[in-house]
Amino acid sequence: MGNAEVRAFPLHRQRKLVSGIARVLGSKQGEEATLFWRETAKSLLQRLIANGVQQAAAEDEVRALLHVVLSELETDAATARG
């Protein structure tokens, strides 16, 4: 057996996950939002690694998720402004 690389379905493409995180982050501000994101990111990172995803790839996944969540928050804010 050789070294196998585990590839998970990209977090940033999981619409329920993205919209759920965006919804919660949109309802929080400041330190409360920061704490929520840190805990969420830590949990997701640990889950990916436990499922066999390499550390660097898992970190990239969580980083990509954050960018998509922030983009969704910006879109939601622009839509709300009209």
Results as ranks from 00 to 15, higher is better:
residue 36 F to W: 03
residue 60 D to K: 13
residue 9 F to T: 03
residue 8 A to P: 03
residue 40 T to H: 05
residue 55 Q to H: 10
residue 37 W to F: 14
residue 74 E to C: 12
residue 2 G to Q: 13
residue 37 W to R: 05
residue 68 V to E: 04
residue 17 L to M: 06
residue 77 A to G: 15
residue 79 T to G: 06
residue 50 A to W: 08
residue 22 A to N: 09
residue 19 S to M: 10
residue 51 N to K: 12
residue 35 L to C: 08
residue 34 T to Y: 10
residue 10 P to S: 11
residue 2 G to D: 05
residue 10 P to R: 05
residue 50 A to P: 11
residue 30 G to R: 10
residue 66 L to S: 09
residue 13 R to W: 13
residue 4 A to S: 10
residue 51 N to A: 07
residue 6 V to F: 15
residue 17 L to E: 01
residue 59 E to R: 08
residue 25 L to D: 08
residue 52 G to D: 01
residue 8 A to M: 14
residue 34 T to M: 01
residue 2 G to M: 09
residue 38 R to G: 11
residue 62 V to W: 01
residue 40 T to S: 03
residue 46 Q to C: 07
residue 70 L to D: 06
residue 44 L to H: 01
residue 68 V to T: 05
residue 34 T to E: 13
residue 16 K to I: 12
residue 2 G to H: 09
residue 38 R to E: 01
residue 78 A to Y: 09
residue 69 V to I: 11
residue 26 G to R: 06
residue 1 M to I: 09
residue 71 S to V: 05
residue 62 V to L: 13
residue 28 K to S: 05
residue 60 D to V: 06
residue 56 A to E: 04
residue 53 V to Y: 00
residue 51 N to L: 14
residue 15 R to E: 10
residue 12 H to T: 04
residue 60 D to W: 12
residue 8 A to F: 05
residue 67 H to S: 06
residue 15 R to D: 13
residue 7 R to Q: 11
residue 30 G to C: 03
residue 29 Q to V: 02
residue 75 T to H: 06
residue 70 L to R: 15
residue 65 L to V: 12
residue 42 K to T: 13
residue 79 T to S: 04
residue 58 A to T: 07
residue 11 L to G: 13
residue 76 D to R: 10
residue 49 I to W: 15
residue 72 E to C: 08
residue 48 L to W: 00
residue 22 A to K: 09
residue 5 E to C: 12
residue 63 R to L: 13
residue 61 E to Q: 10
residue 80 A to Y: 15
residue 57 A to G: 03
residue 66 L to Y: 06
residue 68 V to R: 02
residue 70 L to W: 04
residue 39 E to C: 08
residue 11 L to F: 11
residue 34 T to L: 11
residue 21 I to E: 04
residue 13 R to N: 15
residue 33 A to R: 01
residue 58 A to F: 08
residue 77 A to P: 00
residue 65 L to Q: 01
residue 9 F to Y: 09
residue 67 H to Q: 10
residue 3 N to P: 08
residue 37 W to A: 07
residue 47 R to M: 01
residue 29 Q to C: 10
residue 26 G to C: 15
residue 74 E to R: 11
residue 49 I to P: 03
residue 68 V to I: 02
residue 76 D to G: 11
residue 74 E to W: 14
residue 66 L to T: 08
residue 21 I to V: 02
residue 64 A to Y: 03
residue 68 V to P: 00
residue 6 V to T: 11
residue 79 T to D: 14
residue 57 A to S: 01
residue 58 A to V: 13
residue 50 A to H: 14
residue 26 G to Y: 07
residue 39 E to N: 10
residue 75 T to N: 07
residue 74 E to F: 14
residue 16 K to M: 05
residue 24 V to P: 09
residue 7 R to L: 15
residue 50 A to L: 08
residue 44 L to Y: 04
residue 29 Q to K: 10
residue 11 L to S: 14
residue 44 L to G: 00
residue 4 A to N: 06
residue 46 Q to H: 08
residue 4 A to I: 03
residue 72 E to H: 03
residue 38 R to Y: 05
residue 50 A to N: 15
residue 42 K to E: 01
residue 73 L to H: 02
residue 29 Q to Y: 08
residue 19 S to H: 08
residue 40 T to P: 00
residue 66 L to P: 04
residue 64 A to E: 00
